[in-house]
Amino acid sequence: MAATFEKARSTATADSGKNLLQVSALTMHFPLTQGIIFQRQVGAVRAVDGIDFFVEKGETLGLVGESGCGKSTTGRAILQLYKPTAGSVRFEGTELTTLGGEQMRRMRRKMQMIFQDPYASLNPRMTVGNIIGEPIEVHHLASGKAKTERVQELLRIVGLNPYFTNRYPHEFSGGQRQRIGVARALAVEPEFIVADEPISALDVSIQAQIINLLEELQAKFQLTYLFIAHDLSVVRHISDRVAVMYLGKIVELSDRQELYEKPLHPYTQALLSAVPIPDPAIEQKRKRIILTGDVPSPVNPPTGCRFHTRCWKAQEICSEVDPEFIEHSPRHWAACHFPG
């Protein structure tokens, strides 16, 4: 197992000079315990099970996969909201997994997060001004009048009325709330933002607005995004590169164009074939790959390739050997015994 990580790391860490974020062999297991006083571990939810990737400065890396595959856990483990079980997360060369609480708190000026649910992620008893002002206060960036002005400027940046500072979250619509969440993330002028399904809780009509806002902000402030989503068309629109996750592993990682045109991993192929095409003629002719069975449990993942239980290409080797994450063509990695 360790040997696999080693090899994968060497391949997935190509030009490390440009990399803002470097994730190696990141593993996040949530222990399952039994017993009241003498707790013993009876197993673990292997939410993220050894993944390697890097994020280059200024790019958007899309992270897609079914629900429960470990996308959000990956994002949170990168930000050290969970303490990773193993592996390393390097941000601008600094190893985050070993940072102390106070040092990590300071690092948070550089890395922020936008949450999925704009209703749950804003404290109902705080005014918008206090919500957006909190990061400014915590990191001593401004105080008094300067802080108020900064909050108003941030509201303006995300397209909200600067006079909204004294209002409470419940007075806003979902889209407006998500803008408040974006403003809070921007308050510390971060370099890197983990966007954890930032639009999946919003109305379809609002989704495009938020996507456009995120793109504008990226251009304006040279932001780097890790964009977590399960909507393939949205990821295709916003990402420079895309990583596909299945059951705690990244199965394919490549430049966007390449991934959507020449997917190597059968799981990616199946996912892409499920995206409807808004053209009845093509829609009638196109071939859909329907996967059978359920996603196996991350407590007890299948041996060998984790996808072999649902894969139409699976052979004997697939259930025995875990395929390595190999660079099949430049900047295109996949973990499959029979790619293409």
Binding site: G101, R108, M113, S121, L122, N123, P124, E134
Partner: peptide, 22 residues
């Protein structure tokens, strides 16, 4: 476990601040 508490931690709030302010 609510997300606004996670959000406060992401922003850089320490334990005391999360408890008292959130």
């Amino acid at each position: 476990e609510r997300e606004f508490v996670t959000a406060a931690r992401v922003v850089g709030a320490d334990d005391l601040r999360v408890m008292v302010r959130h």
